[in-house]
Amino acid sequence: MSARLVEIIVPDAEVPQAKAIIAKHCSRFWQEPVPDGLEKYSCVVPSRSIEPLIADLDGNFKGIEGFSVLVLQVEAVLPEIPELEEITPPASNRKPPSKLEVFFTRDRISTNELYDDIEASLELRPNYLLTVILSALIAALGMRSGQTAVVIGAMIIAPLLGPTMAMAMAATVGDKALGRKAIITLVTGILAALVFTYVLGMFIEVNPLVPELRNRTIVHPADIALALACGAAGVLAFSQGASLSLVGVMIAVALVPPIAAAGLFFGSGQEMLGFKALFLLATNLVCINVAGIVTFLVQGLPPRNWRITSGIFFIWLVILFLFVGLVGGRIALGSDGPIYFPSGASAYQDNASNPD
């Protein structure tokens, strides 16, 4: 069931207005007095109705002393409540939704819940930096030895989930403060991962012919499609309250391996391959944001200012088309290009089929 238990506390003087607002959004609610001249309402609300309910309450009672709202997850309700299965509560005076409206009905968690889920992951704490570094190091060692399972394991740590989702969400709602915080956190994490994988690359042999590493130096149309799918699937799961580890794997698959590969290449003196891996990282990041913004909008996340949202989306889209043009030009010219090795690295080719 996709529903929430909403507990609303208002002063006694606001009871009639609060009761009228609650009745618009749900048919079953309970009322009880609480100390200090306050009244408490408890109601079960479909997830799709949380957004308008909180907006109505906030618009009428914001700033009033004693007003508060608490939203809790609901596992089961007996007897069944009609509006949990229907789009419009039977008690509502609104006209029934059209078939098109039914088809596009969003069933996501509220914007407040999205903010609560995402803000904690934007703090630049030692734990965040440590998980980013460990994830990148594990991915780097897994790619270096050609062990795909190890690379996947590194993604489950999912340290870049918060800032990546926050960037797309900030662009969608037009929240500059959230976007600024997300960019700082993401860039710091990427730099930390690059520095530590760079150091690792200085001390271990890096064979660029290992498929797991070579695949991070070439951007194919399939890579762009994968990043777009990861961004859309990640936002879709995140906006419906799915497991953060699941969402994190979707995002990490497009970000962590290119970062780790770039660090290894730079550390081993193969700068050109390092820049190619960074190009894959940039392409994936752009794709995730484009797909993320579109998916957030489809999920009904309301922009504060459509001009800001459309402007940011247009910039991301232009960058994406530029990257697609570069990839298409490389393919048209047949310039995947040979891999050039630093001096004394001819042994790579001899050991390519049996990496250490």
Rank of each mutant, 00 (worst) to 15 (best):
S49K: 14
G267C: 03
T197S: 08
V247D: 12
C230M: 11
L281A: 06
L200P: 00
V132D: 00
S2N: 10
L278A: 00
I308F: 10
Y115Q: 13
W30D: 04
I152A: 02
T105P: 06
K176N: 10
S47V: 03
T295H: 04
R214N: 09
L78T: 12
S2L: 10
D116P: 03
A20D: 14
E51P: 02
E80A: 10
I118F: 04
P33K: 11
L322K: 02
V6D: 05
M1H: 14
M250H: 06
E123R: 13
A140V: 00
E85L: 09
L72V: 03
P96E: 15
I339F: 07
V253E: 05
A76Y: 14
P89M: 06
G328D: 13
I204L: 11
L161C: 01
Q349D: 06
I183A: 11
V247Y: 12
A177Q: 10
G337F: 05
A225C: 08
L297D: 02
S110K: 10
E32A: 15
P82C: 05
L53Q: 03
L264Q: 09
L134D: 01
L141I: 15
P79R: 11
G334W: 08
A237H: 09
P159Y: 05
E39D: 05
M1I: 11
L129F: 15
G179F: 01
P46D: 06
R307D: 00
V15S: 00
P11W: 05
V69A: 07
L191Y: 04
V206Q: 06
M143T: 05
G300W: 02
A352F: 09
A120N: 14
A158W: 00
L72G: 00
N354Q: 09
L186D: 07
E75L: 15
L57H: 07
L246M: 13
Q299A: 10
A140Y: 01
I50N: 15
L226V: 08
L209Y: 14
G66C: 08
I81A: 05
V298W: 11
V34F: 04
E119H: 09
G292Y: 08
T197G: 00
E85T: 11
N215E: 14
W30H: 07
L141N: 05
F238V: 02
L130G: 04
L84I: 12
I87C: 00
C287Q: 02
F203D: 00
A222S: 11
D117K: 15
C43G: 08
I64P: 06
A171H: 02
A347K: 09
P221Q: 11
V210F: 01
Y41V: 00
S92A: 13
A55N: 03
V210S: 02
E65K: 14
I331S: 12
A76Q: 10
A232E: 07
V195K: 03
L228A: 03
R28D: 08
I133E: 03
P208S: 13
I293C: 06
F341R: 13
V10W: 09
V10F: 02
R4C: 07
K62W: 13
L57Y: 07
F104C: 01
S42R: 14
Q147A: 10
Y128T: 02
P303Q: 08
A225R: 03
S42K: 12
R304C: 01
F314M: 13
L194W: 03
F314Q: 04
L297R: 15
G231R: 06
A332E: 11
E65C: 05
G231P: 01
L72F: 06
P258R: 04
L228N: 05
